[in-house]
């Protein structure tokens, strides 16, 4: 449905800004080993990119990006990525979340720890992004925002 406050300037600005915010969020997640950042911060930036499109263009366009029913499964997948990383170590005989014994062949325990931290950061980012979008969707449920 078309909103009565449809402004091409706002839509164009949101379309210009969103990809850069999204790329910066991915950078913050995946560069968290070398610079300040991590899953929580990067996930918040990804959520900001998604919410900017939602606020600027309304439900008709933002439905193409992330649908409303898709946010809850994404959050569950994010939590499960974290838990499965710890549980895979437990299956191979280590302690819970002790990444030195992850079942990836051909890597030193040191680089296994590096990889384990990266995997859980991705899980945290996915969960945080999905949950922030989910909170926004639930708060504006039934209202024609934008």
């Amino acid at each position: 449905m078309r909103s009565q406050f449809d402004s091409p300037i706002i839509v164009l600005g949101a379309r210009l800004l969103t990809p850069y915010i999204m790329v910066f969020g991915l950078y913050v997640i995946f560069h968290g080993h070398y610079s300040p950042g991590g899953g929580f911060q990067g996930g918040t930036l990804l959520a900001a990119a998604v919410l900017l499109i939602r606020v600027a263009t309304g439900r008709r366009v933002s439905r193409l990006q992330i649908q409303e029913f898709a946010t809850t499964p994404l959050a569950v997948i994010g939590v499960i990525i974290y838990f499965a990383t710890g549980f895979a170590v437990m299956i191979t005989g280590g302690y819970f979340l002790d990444y030195g014994q992850l079942p990836i062949p051909g890597m030193d325990p040191v680089w296994l720890r590096y990889t384990g931290i990266l995997i859980i950061e991705v899980g945290i980012g996915l969960a945080v992004m999905a949950i922030l979008v989910m909170i926004f969707d639930n708060m504006v449920k039934g209202e024609d925002y934008a």
Partner: peptide
């Protein structure tokens, strides 16, 4: 321990990872 220059990431993701799981 983890070949990661950012000590905060190592503490958050490795040494104190169960705490981070609780936050999530």
């Amino acid at each position: 321990d983890a070949h990661t220059p950012n000590i905060v990431t190592v503490v958050l993701g490795d040494y104190r990872s169960i705490d981070t799981f609780g936050e999530q």
